[in-house]
Each structure stands twice: as C-alpha cells, then as structure tokens.
Computed example of a mutant assay.
Amino acid sequence: MDLFPRAWSALQEAVRALEGGQWAAPSGCTGWLVQDLVFHLVIDAQDVLITLATTTGAAPSRDAVTYWRPAGPPTGVEAESAFVRRSAAAYATPGGLAHHFDDLAAAAAGRAAAAADPAARVETRDEVFTVADFLAVCVVEATLHHLDLVRHLPGVDGPPPETVAATRALVEVLTGQALPAGPDDHEALRSATGRAPVPAAWGGFTPVVLG
C-alpha cells in the first residue's frame, strides 16, 4: 500500500518532465513511442479507478504473485498496440495527453487508493484480489513501465529505488532464480522481464515477460 503512491507519483513526475521531441522517442515497449506508452498509462490509470470501485464479497482467487501468468514477448503489431498508437496520435498536442494522464493518475494514486481498505476485495479481469494485493501488482506494472518510459531518455528520472527493489524481488520469485549481481537494477529488470537480451554471463537464466 505504501509503495503504490510512491510508484505512481514518480511516474507522474517523469511524464510531466517530458518535452519536445521526447514524446516521439522510442520507448522500451516494442513498437511504441513514448507518447504511445503514456496513452497506455492512461488506460492503466482508468483500470485502477474502475477496479477499486468494483468491490466484491467473493474470496480472493489470486494474489500479488499468482496474478502474473506466462506471456510471449510483444511484437508491436497486436491489435491492442495498433489501438494504442492510433489513440495516442489522436491528441492535438502532447500536452493534452499529459494532462489526461496527470488527471487520472492523481485521482487513482492520490484519492482512490488512499481511501481504499487494504483488506477489501476487488474484482478485475474475472479475478478477485485484496486491495493490498491489487495495488502491489500496480506497483510492479508502474515500475516496469517507468523503466520503459525512460529507456531512451537519460535525462528523465527513473523509478524509485524502493519500487525497483520490490519489483526485482517479485521477478526472482516468479523465475525461481536470483538475478545475478553486477548489472544495475534497471538493466537487470529489463533483461529479466524480456525487455532486453539476457547477458551471456547469466548462463541459463530464463526471463519472464511482464508488463
């Protein structure tokens, strides 16, 4: 619960820092520019608001670890990717897209999550989670997409160390393998989640595609 506002606030600040040609720079998501990724974040923020409003009395069916299911690497040509690119390009200016995300992210992180009962149960994608587990999932998604956002933007701050550490710990649980020491946490997470090639020095490490 404590990490969620930290992750979302940092992501908001990174989007606010974007300027000029940075919106048209490639992101760390296959086939997406930075503006495309920010529109995807708009969808994520909407999902947070909708899910926190969709309470249920049913027992949890998944938690912050079992939420994640194996997936293939994105190709950038999926129908969802095409929708995201068209929608991002429909904004008259990047400022309009930034404002849309900022409004939704502030509502999701600053009000809905802060007001939610951690033990309450919510439903999303036909699964039931406690609020605490759902927001833990959101921390991982926000952290990884923050890394995607700044992949080719060295002047924009990355995600907070504490959310990176939490995401790294989850990846190690999901893969059943400790991430090798040496690479910085950002590059280690990119490789471990299929965003960058696995270094030869990692041996037979098998990445898990998340995001």
Rank of each mutant, 00 (worst) to 15 (best):
A116G: 06
D117N: 13
R125T: 10
D117Q: 09
V122M: 09
A188R: 00
L153C: 07
L104A: 08
G176H: 11
H146W: 00
A201V: 12
D103M: 14
T175L: 04
A192D: 12
H186K: 12
R125V: 13
D184S: 08
L174H: 14
D185G: 15
A192L: 02
L149M: 03
V171H: 06
L170K: 00
L189W: 03
A181K: 06
E162F: 09
A115W: 00
R125Y: 14
H152L: 02
E162S: 14
R121S: 10
V139W: 01
G110E: 05
A115C: 03
G182D: 11
A113H: 11
L149H: 00
D185F: 01
E162C: 12
A113E: 14
V122P: 08
A113P: 12
D102L: 12
A188G: 10
V137H: 02
D102G: 13
T175K: 02
T193Q: 10
H152W: 03
R111H: 15
V139Y: 01
R195H: 01
D148K: 00
D103W: 13
H100Q: 14
G194M: 00
H99T: 15
A192R: 04
V139F: 01
V164E: 09
T124K: 09
H100S: 15
D184G: 08
A201W: 10
P160C: 10
V122D: 13
V137Q: 05
D117H: 12
A165N: 03
H100G: 05
H152V: 01
A166Q: 09
F134I: 07
D133N: 13
P161A: 15
T163M: 09
R168Y: 03
P199C: 10
A114K: 04
L135G: 11
A119W: 04
P199G: 08
D185T: 13
L147E: 11
D102E: 15
L189I: 04
G110K: 07
A115D: 13
A105C: 15
P197Y: 11
P180I: 02
V131D: 09
P161F: 04
L174Q: 10
A181S: 13
G182Q: 13
E127K: 05
D184L: 08
A165M: 01
V171D: 09
V173I: 15
A188E: 03
P161M: 09
V128I: 11
A112L: 07
V171W: 03
V131F: 04
V164A: 12
L179D: 05
D133R: 04
A165L: 03
G182M: 04
A106F: 08
